[in-house]
Amino acid sequence: MLSCRELTEIVTDYAEGRMSFWRRLEVQFHLGMCHPCRAYLRQMRLAAQTVGQLPPEPMPPDIKAELLKRFAALSAADAAPPTSAPPETQTNRTPKS
């Protein structure tokens, strides 16, 4: 029988659906009978969801303005027909300003 202590170590496997069918049944059986473990699972989910809803941190306006300038410049240049650029290679990964 799965203990509460064991359950706290595998809740993420459970939440991620990375568990065998029988293990999953075991967890569900335990959760069905154990209020504290249900609370624990809820709190783990809530912690993750709340991280996802933290207030956004927008980019500082001066940096954003500069990027937008670059973006506009490139879009303008791009209005010209594209040159036959080589297919994407790893050299594209470290573009320099």
Binding site: L67, L74, D78, T94, P95, S97
Partner: peptide, 16 residues
């Protein structure tokens, strides 16, 4: 992060 966006802008036309 800023360098990344500069790279994104430059790479956009070629991004597949």
């Amino acid at each position: 992060v800023q360098e990344t966006w500069i790279g994104v802008i430059a790479g956009l036309p070629r991004f597949e």
